[in-house]
Amino acid sequence: MSFFEILTIIIPSTLLTAAPLIFTSLGGVFSERSGVVNIGLEGLMAVGAFTAAIATLGLEHAGLGDASPWLAIVIAAVAGGVFSLIHAVVSISFRADQTVSGVALNFLAAGLTIFLVKMIYDGKGQTPYITHNIDKINIPGLSKIPIIGPIFFQQVTYTSYLAILISLLVWFIIFKTPFGLRLRSVGEHPAAADTLGISVSKMRYIGVALSGVFGGIGGAVYLVTITSNYNVSTIAGQGFLALAALVFGKWHPIGAMGASMFFGFAQALSITGQQIPFLDRLPSVVMLTAPYVLTLIVLTGFVGRAEAPKADGIPYIKGQR
């Protein structure tokens, strides 16, 4: 197998697995930049994936055809946003430990989604398969470009490119707009932001809600492009992988996107590695654990310091120094 052929397998596969991670880790960026640790990304993805499954099935039934999965992603975004408000209320208004709240959010999402699936489908632990997923396609025009076309634009989904574009948009929002500045200020020094008239709670609520929206989209994209049905093992670690990507990307939108891409690459290799010479001799466990091991190494500071926003994880109480 030539190197070129290897790339035409690996790159599209990377793009496919990276897209949900990119969306979810961008959600994490919003939340943590505002100073709220979000361990609950996993649960938000589960809610997104569950909602997407139910919504797609419903919309298909209503005869919306190929538009169903796209609309389902939008509905899942709303569901994720609403669900994340639990985390917001508990950790911002009720001043609970944010890690505790996040852990509980994951619990609740896992329990609630399967509970509802059993309610809706008479005790069955999984939804039926959706028939209209977002398929891998050759992007018209671009896929005809020699060399680049087959590698980057054949057998890919639109969601992957959407994810990349949105990560650029998120970078712009966070670093180039007044809103972004306020969001970052309540995550770095809430007391100073408060003095300047910025409502710390409001900004943090927005941050967490956006993480819910993006986590919901991430879960939905995972469902409509990869798994096609929702069951107890649909979202098994994807959210934590996105969390790792967020840290690996040093709490930066573009970094998170790059890290997600890299983790997607590692996952793609662990799945398609068997087809590729040299890699077939490498145990798959190396690829599977690579994202986590590398994140640990990055955190130790050997590859440049990764620092969380200063007030990340600390509830803000007015008047307390």
Binding site: V90, A104, G111
Partner: peptide, 22 residues
């Protein structure tokens, strides 16, 4: 009642304990 209800209850209990301040 699906057994997942127990997981939901446990999650809610964690939320409530975490919100001890309230």
């Amino acid at each position: 009642v699906p057994v997942e209800l127990i997981q939901i209850i446990i999650a809610l209990i964690i939320f409530f304990v975490g919100s001890g301040y309230v």
